[in-house]
């Protein structure tokens, strides 16, 4: 069986649609519906961000940029943005470094308690953290991690474990063992095999895992409030205030500000999210 690689792996003409015209109409209709559902809320927010006041039943608001000055003038907001964009990538990277080798072990090696341990990583996300605050805070005090960058990273790290273990494990499992065995047969050592054969094939899946891990770290709010205050506050905590308690345009402005870097990631990550790349990680 040949390995499915890149664009060549995609099927030819879609063969399971009967009538061509109906198909086009259905496709377009579905696309528009989905686009409306996904983009609608975001576009509404965009309009609110440019609004001075907006009352029902006006379709459009009175436009004004005064709320931008209000938000950008708030230095706490700027500090929180910076902290989030520094700590979340670091947490993701750290998570990748400690979890990817573990995922490989889960996928390829046999050791006692493997299944139980794999399942136990579910608990990182499944057990509600509310019940754990006092204990975690006490521990962090003892380790001098309160109100430190490292402390915030640790808390965010917890949220990433699930994604960084489970998805890479699935990815590694899907890689054809024959490839690795072939490399071993020609004399490559285990590390060389891993870095030159396994990792490149697994890369798309690992990148997807990193993406989810990053988002999980980024969105972390309750834990970072305890550990990061007062000098290392993150964006999610700030967001509650701005979204809930100020006139609508303020929340909208902040949302737009936050989403811009995210959309940048989106465009950069498109390469990896494309189906062909993910296909490179799997074979039969």
């Amino acid at each position: 069986m040949s390995v499915a690689v890149g664009a060549a792996g995609r099927a030819g003409a879609p063969w399971f649609w009967a009538i061509a015209g109906l198909r086009r109409a259905l496709e377009l209709g579905a696309f528009l519906a989905l686009a409306a559902f996904i983009l609608g809320p975001l576009l509404t927010l965009l309009v609110w961000a440019a609004a001075g006041t907006w009352l029902f039943p006006n379709l459009l608001p009175e436009f004004s940029l005064r709320w931008w000055y209000y938000v950008l003038g708030n230095e706490n907001v700027v500090k929180a943005i910076r902290m989030s964009f520094l700590s979340a990538p670091v947490a993701t990277l750290l998570s990748a470094v400690i979890c990817i080798p573990a995922a490989y072990a889960f996928a390829r090696l046999e050791f006692p308690g493997r299944r139980l341990l794999l399942l136990s990583f579910l608990s990182a996300n499944a057990f509600p953290k509310i019940g754990l605050y006092v204990s975690i805070a006490t521990l962090f005090y003892r380790l001098n991690l309160m109100d430190t960058f490292a402390g915030v990273v640790m808390i965010q790290l917890i949220n990433t474990l699930l994604f960084m273990i489970w998805i890479p494990t699935g990815t590694f499992r899907g890689i054809n063992r024959n490839l690795e065995d072939a490399a071993r047969d020609v004399g490559a050592g285990p590390l060389r095999t891993f870095f030159n054969i396994t990792l490149p094939i697994a890369l798309p899946g690992l990148i997807v895992a990193s993406l989810f891990a990053f988002l999980a770290a980024f969105d972390e709010a309750q834990g970072t409030l305890i550990v990061g205050t007062p000098n290392h506050m993150t964006m999610p905590v700030m967001m509650y205030t701005l979204v809930l308690s100020y006139p609508q345009p303020v929340g909208a402005v902040f949302s737009v500000l936050l989403s811009l870097p995210s959309l940048l990631f989106l465009l950069l990550a498109q390469r990896y999210l494309r189906a062909g790349y993910l296909a490179a990680g799997y074979s039969l």
Binding site: P41, L45, M239, V243, S255, S259, F265, L266, Q270, R274
Partner: peptide, 19 residues
């Protein structure tokens, strides 16, 4: 479509709720 469906991924949950 491939680009469209990934958009919500990059929107923080609080903002998504507000939107």
């Amino acid at each position: 479509l491939a680009v469209l469906f990934t958009i919500p991924l990059f929107v923080p949950v609080v903002i998504a709720s507000f939107a």
